[in-house]
Simulated assay, not measured.
Amino acid sequence: MSAMKSWGRVSTMGLVAAWYSSNIGVLLLNKYLLSNYGFKYPIFLTMCHMTACSLLSYIAIVWMKMAPVHTVKSRVQFMKISALSLIFCASVVSGNISLKYLPVSFNQAIGATTPFFTAVFAYLMTLNREAWLTYVTLIPVVAGVIIATGSEPSFHLFGFIMCVGATAARALKTVVQGILLSSEGEKLNSMNLLLYMAPIAVVLLLPVTLCMEENVVGATLALARDDLTIIWLLLFNSGLAYFVNLTNFLVTNHTSALTLQVLGNAKGAAAVVISILIFKNPVSVTGMLGYSLTIVGVILYSEAKKRSK
């Protein structure tokens, strides 16, 4: 029995390590491609991610049976999934655009304010009120980002707006998903939801890519003629984007949603440190103090939420 327990602990630790590696890896690789490599096509990059998620989701669920297949039961449910896919696209595209202009450390600091936006949208859309202490814990979350923003050496207004938009869209998706797929018959696990959302995202992103990044295929082929590495980077990056979702699902299954939230906070801090070491972007002491304050606020928020249940 103890051998089984220790094996379960080891496998959970392995999954958490894989989730961390893929999550931080895709973030750093996105930054490298969009800022350092000279691949200036964030919408096309998102479309590559969604294409990989479509194909690999199908293989994982339909062929490898890693999760039971849930069918879409009605046109209404399909429309709900499409709405979620649109918000999901907005979040990922905005996040990738922000990485063109902002360092990963600052990007993660803004991203840590997701609980604030989630609480705001939950109140506006469902009139769901939290305990007053939960709202108090959001003060350091926002204050930390304000401090970090005021002292960020690489601040870029458009990048900042895109990053805030991405964070808000991420929170909106969580709330909308809770509202739209709340009935027992419509609930989908994250792997099945991705299986349906990713192809819809590709269809939505294709015309946007062609309009806003019209010469992307020609430019990518031109880059590939000079250096074939770009093709391998895009393939690896896209596969990694799916692996983030897969490991997220597996870690949630092995732990709990709350544990995942705590692990996510630590992951953000790890991404900040690793990105500063790799990209050597300038950071101020005040900025790091601001980000630390945000992380403390998020941890307090998680605790307050747990106690209010």
Rank of each mutant, 00 (worst) to 15 (best):
M1K: 14
K5R: 12
M13L: 15
A17M: 12
Y20V: 02
Y20S: 07
S22M: 02
S22P: 01
I24V: 06
I24A: 00
L29D: 05
N30V: 05
Y32N: 11
L33D: 00
S35Y: 06
N36K: 08
Y37G: 08
P42V: 03
I43G: 11
L45N: 14
H49A: 06
T51K: 11
C53H: 13
S54H: 03
L55A: 14
L55K: 14
L55W: 10
Y58P: 04
I59D: 02
I61D: 06
M66T: 02
A67V: 03
T71Q: 14
V72E: 07
S74F: 02
Q77G: 12
F78H: 10
S82Q: 14
A83H: 13
S85E: 12
C89P: 01
A90Y: 01
S91V: 01
G95V: 09
N96L: 10
L99G: 06
S105K: 08
N107S: 12
N107E: 05
A109M: 08
A109R: 08
I110R: 01
G111E: 02
G111N: 05
A112I: 00
A112R: 10
P115N: 13
P115W: 09
T118M: 13
L124D: 09
T126H: 02
E130Q: 11
E130W: 02
A131P: 01
W132V: 01
L133H: 09
T134M: 06
T134Q: 15
T137C: 15
T137Y: 13
I139E: 15
I147W: 09
A148L: 09
A148S: 10
T149A: 07
P153Y: 02
P153Q: 07
P153L: 03
F155T: 03
H156W: 08
F158E: 13
I161H: 01
M162E: 09
C163R: 08
V164T: 00
A168E: 08
R170N: 14
L172Y: 09
V175E: 12
I179Q: 15
I179L: 14
S183Q: 12
G185D: 07
E186R: 07
E186G: 09
M191R: 13
L193Y: 01
L194M: 13
L195K: 14
V202P: 08
V203E: 10
V203W: 00
V203P: 03
N215W: 00
G218D: 15
G218M: 13
T220P: 13
L221M: 10
A224V: 06
L228I: 02
L228G: 07
I230W: 01
I231H: 05
I231A: 06
I231F: 12
W232V: 05
L233R: 13
L234C: 04
N237E: 06
L240I: 10
L240R: 13
Y242F: 13
V244L: 04
F249G: 12
F249Y: 15
L250C: 09
V251A: 15
H254R: 11
T255A: 15
S256P: 01
S256M: 04
A257C: 07
L258D: 01
L258G: 07
T259H: 10
N265I: 05
K267C: 08
A271W: 10
I278R: 15
N281C: 05
N281H: 12
V285E: 09
L289F: 10
L289Y: 01
S292Y: 04
T294F: 11
V296F: 15
V298H: 12
V298G: 03
I299K: 10
I299V: 09
Y301R: 03
E303A: 11
R307Y: 01
S308D: 05
S308L: 03
K309C: 06
